[in-house]
Design a protein around this nucleic acid. Structure first.
Lengths: 221, 221
DNA sequence: AAGTGGTCTAGACCACGTA
DNA sequence: ACGTGGTCTAGACCACTTA
């Protein structure tokens, strides 16, 4: 039934900017319950095809945005699912206060300490991702931080610090000398870069910048 | 109520890999209808926190992936919403059969003709996006293709060809001479690149590769 | 103030996967 | 074959937004 409603809307019966009938009228028209129409409409809202406003009704969006879900698995899982052998190497790990732009992005209080962790993730011993991470010390809750040489910070956080808010951005960067050496690339090469910040109940957890090996491509659903 | 269920699950009552109670038991525990629990669980499935299987029950995912929604508006809207003046320039437009890798990505039948359109989108007269697009000729349904000098192909397609299936990928590329000139960049500069393919009822509509100006950053929700 | 979508209920039946 | 989640119904009440 939901699919039928989706087809009913999509079959170019309505174009960009058009106002759709009331939910209850659509329900009558298609011979189903209003709640079914509501559910179908909420699906279409999520995919970005329509806009709904209380009292304002439902419209087909004038400029439908391309909307897709991006899924970035734990690095180890991503590498192993390609059939490659995973490994990682801790480059450095020190506790200090992060630079301003990091603290700002994390919405950190002034002078809050972070654990700064740099690591490389390897696929069949070849550099795959260079990870530059800041972890709010509050997440260790007094306990000493774990040994990130045996478990990557990426994986430890996924297992121990569930988040309820996240901010992500993508960009392309040219490798400087450091990045080129870490990723066995060349100075100036283009690298795909993901920046992530996570929070739990308003408290910052971590901010990580990941640089992928040259030629990496991220596929969405 | 849904939020209450979300909090109930998230409050570290259950960790990665843990099995959750049956929907109906949660409903009893929290004093609400099962359908409410189902809805809340479906939300959490979408955000990637849990996995549900008929007969298998509900589990907290072992390795929670970072999952976010990416929204790429029509280029004109993206540029204007930054307060910049939008313009675009058609670079070329010809009809012929696309190279194999394009036809394959579009799931095009052999020898199906496409309109090949190349254009630049400008923000305050500065190159913002270079767009390399293939449009399946079937979408024009016999009519002559519109004049893409007055309306960009991007915008025309959004207005006239709703899609129900899409594939997107992101990458970083180094500018070759052509790209550098088109985007007023420099050879070797890193550019963010989006590749999109859309279909309607199984029929290919368009495949587009968009190269963003150097320094571009895509933010997700 | 009124109209629209948003959420919830209590129940039914269905579809899928596992045993 | 059975147990679990998935979808649907018919109805109630609520929340927001616009007129």
């Amino acid at each position: 039934m939901r699919d039928e409603i989706h087809r009913w809307i999509l079959s170019s019966r309505y174009g960009p900017g058009d106002k759709l009938p009331l939910d209850k009228d659509i329900a009558v028209e298609l011979g189903c319950a209003r709640s079914t129409v509501v559910r179908a409409m909420q699906d279409l809202t999520q995919t970005g095809l329509i806009e709904r406003r209380r009292k304002g009704g439902t419209q087909v969006r004038h400029h439908r945005a391309t909307r897709a879900v991006v899924d970035i698995p734990v690095h180890r899982v991503a590498i192993e699912s390609q059939g490659a052998r995973y490994d990682h190497r801790l480059l450095s790990q020190e506790t200090h206060t992060p630079p301003d732009h990091i603290a700002q992005a994390m919405r950190l209080g002034a002078m809050a300490d972070c654990l700064h962790v740099r690591a490389v993730h390897l696929a069949d011993d070849r550099p795959y991702i260079y990870e530059n991470r800041w972890i709010a010390c509050t997440v260790f809750a007094g306990h000493p931080p774990p040994d990130f040489t045996t478990i990557s910070a990426n994986e430890w956080l996924v297992a121990h610090c569930p988040y309820d808010d996240i901010s992500v951005s993508f960009s392309a960067v040219s490798a400087n000398r450091d990045l080129a050496e870490t990723l066995a690339s060349n100075i100036g090469n283009a690298h795909f870069c993901v920046e992530r910040c996570t929070w739990s109940q308003g408290q910052p957890i971590t901010m990580v910048t990941s640089f992928f090996h040259a030629g990496y491509r991220l596929n969405l659903q």
